[in-house]
């Protein structure tokens, strides 16, 4: 019944399809059941969970996407920080974010609890959207518009770290997202932004 004792270095009998022992059967059964749990969790999270990388995905011309981003930034601009516009779209708006060597454009100011559709793409190379300190990560690929429904949960001053190598200045590529609370008050330190804004006036 059992295979004759031999090692993995010895040729096996011509017919090696022999019944397995109980311990092996039990383990294979447990492992299989666990694999089914692993598999079921993903569709389940799409159904019940709040974090899914689905979104709406389509091809886009990088230049046109950037033009749309600039248009969006002009429409909802409320200020400027270090030369980059601060843009505060209303709840439910289509929001645009372009990654390019080596900056994220523009700075977004969102409201906690409100939902937006965030479109992300790149003007040049692959970039990585990594929201700090939330640790939410998405790949930003030139030629593709990745539109995700996002709902910030709490106010704060966030950073977007680029976490895909995009060239020799990759490590200098940091953007900013501000989330304000229900009263509309930014909890973030906007010292820089205010000064720049006054100068502009």
């Amino acid at each position: 019944m059992l295979t004759k004792v031999h090692s993995g270095l010895d040729p096996a009998p011509g017919v090696w399809w022999k019944p397995a022992h109980k311990a092996e059967k039990v383990w294979v059964g447990i492992a299989f059941a666990w694999c089914m749990v692993l598999f079921a969790m993903m569709p389940l999270w799409h159904w019940k969970g709040g974090q899914n990388p689905s979104g709406i995905r389509r091809r886009v011309d990088p230049q046109k996407f950037f033009a749309r981003t600039v248009e969006f930034a002009t429409q909802y601009k409320i200020g400027e920080d270090r030369g980059i516009p601060i843009v505060a779209p209303p709840a439910g708006a289509e929001v645009y974010l372009t990654g390019m060597t080596y900056q994220w454009y523009p700075i977004l100011q969102l409201q906690a609890g409100a939902t937006y559709r965030l479109h992300m793409s790149s003007l040049d190379f692959n970039h990585g959207f990594s929201l700090y300190p939330m640790n939410v990560n998405f790949q930003v690929v030139p030629g593709y518009d990745y539109a995700l429904q996002v709902t910030p949960t709490a106010a704060g001053d966030f950073r977007i770290i680029c976490n895909e190598f995009c060239g020799i200045g990759h490590h200098t590529m940091v953007g900013r997202v501000i989330v304000v609370d229900g009263a509309g008050k930014p909890l973030a330190d906007n010292a820089h932004a205010v000064i720049r804004d006054r100068e502009a006036k």
Binding site: G49, G50, Q51, N52, P53, S54, G55, T115, L131, M134, N135, V136, L148, Q149, V150, T151, P152, T153
Partner: peptide, 8 residues
Amino acid sequence: LSFLWKVG
């Protein structure tokens, strides 16, 4: 994961 912003 469940502590994050809602994303979808």
